[in-house]
């Protein structure tokens, strides 16, 4: 099986795919946790799994679990020790990271008493202990409550700002869309679609979407004739128009008849649409 993924340095890259698509296997290969049955791989011109390579990467596993008898400082000291770090340099780095992930005040709590969010934070901190160039994050937002998800996304954007390359792995497309610079869609071990997210979503389709509620006196039939598509869900009507003029005219008409404009704008596709399309396209393989 051939697998080629292009990741630009200093960007956030998302590897997305349904369960069983080979995401985890790909990730494990890239991390050097498993060996390819044939052939080999390199990143930064270093063989996968080599110590030199491992010095330059960081990894946050999905649903991370750590030696739970340690507290945050001890845990990070342990991981730092694996890199040969020690003394004041290590202590400084630990303090910096704990501040960064917002765990400094809670540094004395033992890992066994951590909440899901705290585990994720300390997990990110341990992935960054060696100041890596490339960070692998496996489902970093899964299982987190909305504020924690937002915090996690902010941290990822921060990493990009620091010039690090972030390699995300997730099936939560909505979380990926706003922060990824580029993605690769993986299904059944094959990359179906790959590229910058803007290109993939194809922002300018030219169509406009109008969503309204309430009002009466306007002709539903007329609207149905003029629109490309019209759906009624309870009070709400959603319409799709070929251009901006038609959409504006329809909006005006509804507003004049006491309706409320809920949404009016250019129609965009979501990552989810692209994903479903890509997976379906290769479905008969």
């Amino acid at each position: 099986m051939d697998l080629s993924i292009e990741v630009e340095e200093g960007t956030i890259f998302g590897l997305v795919g349904p369960n069983g698509s080979g995401k985890t296997t790909t990730l494990k290969l890239l991390l050097g946790l498993i060996y390819p049955t044939a052939g080999s791989g390199t990143v930064f011109d270093l063989p996968l799994g080599s110590p030199e390579y491992k010095r330059r990467i960081g990894f946050l596993p999905e649903g991370p679990y750590f030696y739970d008898h340690l507290n945050a400082v001890e845990l990070l000291a342990f991981y730092g020790g694996l890199f040969g770090m020690s003394g004041a340099a290590l202590q400084d780095r630990i303090e910096e990271l704990l501040h960064m992930v917002g765990m400094w005040d809670r540094r004395e709590i033992r890992v066994r008493n951590y909440s899901r969010g705290m585990l994720q934070r300390i997990g990110l901190a341990q992935a960054l202990i060696n100041d890596p160039d490339l960070v692998f994050l496996d489902e970093p937002t899964a299982g987190l409550d909305p504020p924690a998800q937002m915090e996690m996304r902010r941290l990822m954007v921060d990493l990009r700002r620091q010039g690090k390359t972030v390699f995300l792995c997730s099936h939560l497309l909505k979380d990926m869309e706003p922060i990824c610079d580029s993605v690769a869609i993986l299904a059944r071990g094959v990359v179906r679609r790959q590229g910058r997210i803007r290109d993939l979503l194809g922002a300018e389709s030219g169509r406009f979407r109008l969503r309204v509620a309430g009002g009466n006196g306007f002709s539903l039939d007329s609207l149905r004739d003029r629109s490309l598509d019209l759906k009624i869900e309870g009070e709400e009507i959603t319409m799709l128009f070929a251009n901006q003029q038609q959409a504006l005219a329809a909006a005006q008409e509804i507003a004049d008849n006491g309706g409320t404009i809920l949404e009016l704008g250019a129609q965009t596709r979501s990552l989810e649409d692209v994903f479903i399309e890509a997976v379906a396209a290769g479905g008969d393989e």
Partner: peptide
């Protein structure tokens, strides 16, 4: 418990 993942991805 997959604690091994975070260790083996360090230079070990």
């Amino acid at each position: 418990k997959r604690t091994i993942h975070t260790i083996l991805t360090k230079p070990v």
